[in-house]
């Protein structure tokens, strides 16, 4: 809030000559500016500081203002952010003006984001850091990994900033061994062994056969799991979580195929349907995994590829 005063009143209050007050204002010692009707305006906080300096109580005590003493104790304990030097270099991450520079800083993205404010995360802040070339800070930050890349921010953005693309680019630029959680490990495992959880071919095929027998006994008489069937119409990929932890859930689809009389098959290798390179920002790995599915389609001469999610 602003404190409004006349020079004569101020002079009387502090026991100095009117010209002294005017000199203070002219020199900037008293940070006030001219207001309407031969009055001056200064921040109430500055007035409080002045009173403190003269050992006086402020003449007014606005009810909506905090005491100077309580602010000072907070100021003393608050950590000051060190000054940051902007080198003027442009971000390597924001590859197009549409990814950051065109941002209007309106903050709509931050309002739309369900996790804005958590751990200081804020899509607008991330875009602004990219504009300022703070690539290192962005890449080291955990924010892009707490973001679910849901795109709420992007669909709300009036400037059409490509926030999700930027976020994924930041993810992709992190050193691979610093990618949080199992995502990158899953990518490596998939490249090495054909699925994110490293399930061996023999175990997978055995599991499929066993589950098929259960299904046949339970509700689908004559059912046999079609592994590596050449010329089947539909090739089915699998989320490795299912054979690993929830194998019975694989039967939902199988039962539907059975009821529909579908001609379908599961490849015995490279059946992974979850491409974690999408999340870790690893385009090269994504391409390899997709290529293997295409190879399976060609090898088994299928017509339709079904992706499980």
């Amino acid at each position: 809030m602003m404190y409004e005063f006349r020079v004569s009143e101020m002079a009387e209050e502090f026991g100095v000559h009117r010209n002294t007050i005017r000199n203070w204002i002219a020199a900037g010692t008293l940070p006030a500016k001219e207001g309407p009707g031969r009055k001056y305006l200064m921040k109430f906080h500055d007035y409080q500081v002045l009173c403190e300096k003269f050992g006086r109580e402020p003449v007014i005590h606005p009810s909506n203002h905090v005491e100077l003493a309580s602010i000072q104790s907070m100021e003393a304990s608050a950590e000051q952010m060190p000054p940051m030097v902007l080198e003027g270099h442009h971000s390597e991450l924001a590859v197009d003006p549409n990814w950051a520079d065109a941002c209007l800083t309106c903050g709509t993205c931050a309002s739309a984001c369900p996790i804005a404010g958590v751990d200081g995360l804020d899509p607008r802040k991330i875009v602004r850091m990219a504009v300022l070339g703070m690539d290192k800070e962005l890449i080291e930050s955990q924010w892009p990994w707490k973001c679910t890349m849901c795109g709420k921010c992007e669909v709300s953005c009036p400037a059409n900033i490509q926030i999700v693309a930027l976020m994924r680019k930041i993810r992709g630029n992190r050193e691979r061994d610093k990618v949080p959680g199992p995502i990158h490990k899953g990518v490596v495992m998939c490249l090495e062994r054909g699925n994110n959880l490293g399930i061996p071919k023999d175990d997978f095929v055995y599991l499929c056969e066993e589950l098929g027998e259960e299904l046949a006994a339970d509700s689908c008489p004559g059912f046999v799991t079609p592994v590596d069937v050449h010329g089947a119409r539909v090739l089915v990929t699998v989320n490795s979580k299912e054979p690993f932890a929830e194998p019975d859930d694989m039967k939902y689809w199988w039962k539907i195929f059975y009821a529909a009389g579908e001609s379908w098959t599961i490849p015995s290798e490279n059946w992974e349907g979850v491409n974690w390179g999408l999340f870790s920002g690893d385009d090269a790995a994504m391409k390899v995994v997709v290529g293997r599915i295409v190879d399976n389609m060609r090898r088994l001469n299928c017509k339709v590829l079904l992706l499980p999610e």
Partner: peptide
């Protein structure tokens, strides 16, 4: 839990 968050440690 999108974007890999289901598997992430957060």
């Amino acid at each position: 839990a999108g974007g890999g968050a289901w598997a992430m440690p957060f």
